[in-house]
Amino acid sequence: MSQNYQQSIQSAPVQNAPENTQDMIAELKQLKKLVDEGILTEEEFSAKKKQVLGL
């Protein structure tokens, strides 16, 4: 991604916070289901969780 694009995303007002939060929760639930089914390891889940949460 270009640096300008990243900066515009970071500085954009958080108008869709509830929607974004709901999307993140849904994705984390889906990932946890994959862990429960043995498809992902806990380590893979932790890495993806950090990515989803932007940590």
Rank of each mutant, 00 (worst) to 15 (best):
M1V: 14
M1Y: 13
M1C: 12
S2N: 15
Q3A: 15
Q3P: 05
Y5K: 12
Y5R: 11
Y5A: 14
Y5D: 12
Y5F: 13
Q6M: 15
Q6N: 14
Q6D: 12
Q7R: 11
S8N: 10
S8W: 08
I9L: 15
I9G: 05
I9M: 14
Q10S: 11
Q10A: 13
S11M: 04
S11K: 04
S11R: 04
A12P: 04
A12H: 08
A12D: 05
A12Q: 13
A12E: 09
P13C: 02
P13Y: 01
V14I: 10
Q15I: 09
Q15L: 13
Q15K: 09
N16S: 12
N16W: 08
A17V: 07
A17T: 07
P18I: 04
E19L: 14
E19F: 11
N20Q: 14
N20C: 05
T21H: 08
Q22K: 09
Q22A: 15
Q22T: 06
D23C: 03
D23Q: 11
D23N: 11
D23M: 09
M24L: 12
I25P: 03
I25M: 12
E27W: 06
E27V: 11
L28F: 08
L28C: 07
L28N: 07
K29Y: 05
Q30C: 05
L31I: 06
K32E: 00
K32N: 01
K32P: 00
K33G: 13
K33T: 08
K33W: 00
K33H: 04
L34R: 02
L34S: 02
L34M: 11
L34N: 01
V35N: 00
E37I: 06
G38M: 11
I39M: 09
I39L: 09
I39D: 12
L40M: 08
L40I: 05
L40C: 06
L40F: 11
L40E: 02
T41F: 03
T41S: 13
E43V: 04
E44T: 04
E44R: 04
E44P: 02
E44I: 02
F45M: 00
F45R: 00
F45P: 01
S46M: 05
A47N: 10
K48A: 03
K48C: 01
K49A: 03
K50M: 04
K50S: 11
K50F: 00
K50T: 05
K50Q: 09
K50I: 00
Q51R: 03
Q51H: 06
V52M: 03
V52I: 15
L53K: 08
G54M: 04
L55F: 08
